[in-house]
């Protein structure tokens, strides 16, 4: 009798403890969400602010307006519309080329066995350890020689020529496709070329989507190469560098709210794309590791 009673006491004690723990977790999570979401709310509020200036003493603007969005697309000093088109063009072309390259390279390294395979893999690993923009000045010189100085083509080349080094995620995916598929096809007389196009690629939609999205998003966020390649040629800027330019000392006072509007315009599509691809992202990064 006493025994069962103490047991139920223990149980209620345990349940209460658990409930308390849950409440603590809920509180921590809520506080964290507020901290994490606050800057984004601030961004949106600032983009709707009618008053000029960098900062206000209050959080919610006194004057809510969409003028900043109108200015964004009509202003002559900062041609945001032009930048948007530039970025879109660069993103589309480098997305197509990079995706093709990445798929080709990762398929070759994952499914085909050839003599210099390990050498190539090690070579890629070593190349990847150089800081990405270390050779920026040299690349600029090369572009100059090819007559591509300050052109969008140069950006497409920079973004997609190095893309081949990012083969790991796609290779990890190809590694998980059973090799028996290849062998069966080979017995049926298919060449490796046919296996690639007709068997492996149709099975690889998730990784194609993932690769295409990451390579598409890249140019929208790149600041480094644009800043060095385009210098003062504001017609050729992409959005990241253009928006950064708005925040220089001479213009920040007039353009801070416009910058916020531009940031919102860029952030919305990218956020949607990112949320779409996050499950591929996780699978890609950890896929190889779990297996090993």
């Amino acid at each position: 009798m006493t025994n069962t009673q103490s047991k139920s006491d223990m149980q209620t004690g345990y349940a209460a403890k658990r409930k308390l723990a849950n409440i603590v977790v809920y509180i921590i999570l809520s506080v964290m969400v507020v901290i994490w979401i606050f800057p984004i709310i601030w961004l949106i509020l600032q983009s709707l602010r009618g008053e000029k200036g960098i900062s206000t003493k209050y959080l919610i603007p006194h004057q809510i307006t969409f003028d900043n969005y109108v200015t964004l697309f009509t202003d002559e000093r900062f041609p945001f519309g032009q930048w948007f088109v530039n970025t879109l063009l660069v993103a589309i072309f480098s997305c197509i080329i990079s995706t093709l390259f990445i798929l080709m390279i990762s398929y070759a390294f994952s499914r085909l066995r050839f003599k210099s395979r390990k050498t190539f893999l090690n070579f890629g690993l070593i190349l990847g350890m150089f800081p990405g923009f270390m050779s920026m000045a040299a690349t600029y010189n090369i572009m100059e020689v090819f007559g591509l100085k300050q052109s969008l083509v140069a950006l497409v080349i920079v973004y997609s020529a190095g893309a081949g080094l990012g083969y790991q995620v796609a290779k990890g995916f190809f590694d998980t496709i059973p090799r028996s598929l290849d062998e069966a096809a080979k017995i049926d007389g298919a060449t490796r070329n046919q296996i690639f196009w007709q068997i492996i690629l149709p099975l690889s939609k998730p990784i194609i989507v993932y690769t295409a999205l990451t390579t598409f998003i890249g140019p929208w966020a790149d600041y480094i190469f644009v800043s060095y390649f385009m210098k003062d040629n504001s017609e050729k800027y992409t959005v990241a560098y253009g928006l950064y330019k708005m925040l220089e000392n001479q213009t920040i006072n007039d353009y801070f709210t416009v910058f916020c509007a531009g940031a919102v315009v860029i952030a919305i599509p990218i956020t949607i794309l990112f949320v779409v691809m996050q499950r591929f992202y996780v699978a890609g990064v950890t896929g190889g590791a779990v297996k090993g």
């Binding site: 994490w36 966020a221 600041y223 940031a263 952030a267 956020t271 794309l273 990112f274 996050q278």
Partner: peptide, 19 residues
């Protein structure tokens, strides 16, 4: 909620943080 903050391009959130 957390993924949204990770999704916004870094140059946007970081420049915002700077201000």
């Amino acid at each position: 909620m957390f993924v949204i903050t990770a999704a916004v391009p870094q140059f946007v959130t970081l420049l915002l943080m700077r201000l």
